[in-house]
Amino acid sequence: MSKEWPLWEVFIRGQHGLSHRHVGSLHAPDAEMAIKNARDVYTRRNEGQSIWVVEARHITASSPSEKGPLYEPSESKVYRHPTFFDIPDDVGAM
């Protein structure tokens, strides 16, 4: 049995009703303690409204070596970007 606690990735939703954002990681013996630790480590300055934690081993990540096939094809397809529309200022951030 490993003596290290598992690694958890922490996501916090800030004050402004935005989506949860990755803020960092920490170690904890279980999910409940991970939430508590996240509260203590990452919300000391009133940053959070909601905390998600997920054990890092459950995250499937894309491989950096596949950057070419994964992302490059979209670079040349400008028509996919809605840059040709004038967006009224009232709409705000999209």
Binding site: L26, H27, N37, D40, V41
Partner: peptide, 11 residues
């Protein structure tokens, strides 16, 4: 003993 507990105790 660990960073997380250190911060929690200080809090």
């Amino acid at each position: 003993p660990v960073l997380e507990e250190d911060i929690a105790l200080a809090n």
